[in-house]
Nucleic acid binder design. Structure first.
Lengths: 225, 225
DNA sequence: GAAAATTTGTTCGTATGTATC
DNA sequence: CGATACATACGAACAAATTTT
């Protein structure tokens, strides 16, 4: 058994037992001494904690380890990678999208500022064509910004975590038809958000997802994504 | 800039460019040579990839780095920690729960096997009292098993990711009244699942969440969890 | 702005534990 | 059981970055 794992567990527990973002944990050398290991072993633990997004490391005087201020980005990417590796079924993915996206689009419609409307609009202003490499990413950005505008960080993280699986799926399924449909539906969703009409936006989202489900889902509902 | 970070990025990209669980990435020494760094620097990258749950490391002949088979558990815990550190608002948490739990309870009602019903029932058979240290954990287990039965791994991961924030919140809000309400509502949800009645189960869940919202939410809707 | 102090980043060499054949 | 391949772990040292003086 690797001794750095025990250190990771102990420091994680320490953080959860009341520490807050920004609190100091000490330097590599101090911690190595405290746990009675070499600096190399301590570094193993530090890298793991850092990758988990739990600590931040800085060099120089007053540097060392600090409790990270929550940035779910890294952890969300890791979860996204896991869902990708787990090879979600098409069914699981569209179901999860339906649940999350109809919720975030309603929140977004209720809370969008004029700046938000502009930011969202920028993502549909210059629609890409189906064979453009960035097409899928731009479309996914639209949904992510929607979740951002919704303002619920837990739901935003969930939407982001789907990205890995979505990319694999949608990139494999890019026809001119679906691209046109996506562009049209995003436009209607944007209009609903701009008008502050949650029902209209949710209705457009629902139709958008329904089309995605029909277009590719018919012949692969049991397939892995 | 740390060179191990570039290595992490490159290997992550390589994994996403078509590799699958179990595929070999090489040994530490091979990879260190390939990237032109020392073994220690390579180890930094390995620890980070491992903490992200992307690779698995084994010793001995035929050992080295392999692409991990997706186990979302680790990444989900990391995300849970992040949402904890971000200090979600009470509002964000109950909204996210409402979205996720009403979806998973419906799926569970549709798909539960007799064994699932028994497993879920075991969690409400011996209700704990409010001052019991495990009360909150048992209640959260109930929701988690519900999501498991639902069979959607993306939604299950999202439900699990809320756990850190939920624990902090509910543990601080344990009165005998809420405990009684939780026990009663879980019982009704279980009955709905057992009967395969998605509407009844969803209705009970909705009331359950509504009570939680009312009970503690009145005086702290803007508070951090 | 320059020098000093602090701390991580990186390297080499070496020894040990562990899994596979 | 022995040989091999591999990660784990240690110590000493220098380079690079950052903050304080």
């Amino acid at each position: 058994m690797r001794s750095s794992l025990a250190i990771v567990d102990e420091l994680r527990a320490q953080i959860f037992a009341g520490m807050r973002a920004g609190d100091r944990l000490g330097t590599e050398v101090e911690l190595a001494e405290r746990f009675g290991v070499s600096r190399i072993t301590m570094r193993d633990a530090v890298r793991a904690l850092e990758a988990e997004g739990l600590v931040e490391v800085s060099v120089g005087t007053r540097g060392g380890l600090r409790v990270a201020d929550g940035d779910a980005g890294r952890a969300t990417e890791a979860l996204s990678a896991q869902l990708y590796l787990q090879e979600l079924t098409w069914q699981e993915l569209v179901d999860a999208m339906a649940v999350l996206e109809t919720a975030t689009v309603r929140l977004a419609a209720e809370r969008a500022t004029p700046e938000d409307v502009v930011r969202l609009g920028a993502l549909i202003e210059h629609p890409l064509s189906a064979h453009d490499a960035d097409f899928t990413d731009q479309a996914l950005d639209f949904h992510q910004v929607l979740a951002q505008i919704g303002g619920n960080r837990a739901l935003l993280a969930a939407v982001r975590a789907l990205r890995g699986a979505q990319r694999r799926l949608f990139a494999a399924d890019n026809t001119a038809d679906t691209a046109a449909s996506v562009t049209e539906m995003h436009g209607r969703i944007h209009a609903g958000i701009a008008a502050g009409d949650a029902d209209a936006a949710a209705e457009a989202m629902s139709e958008h997802l329904g089309r995605l489900r029909d277009a590719a889902g018919r012949h692969r509902s049991a397939d892995r994504v």
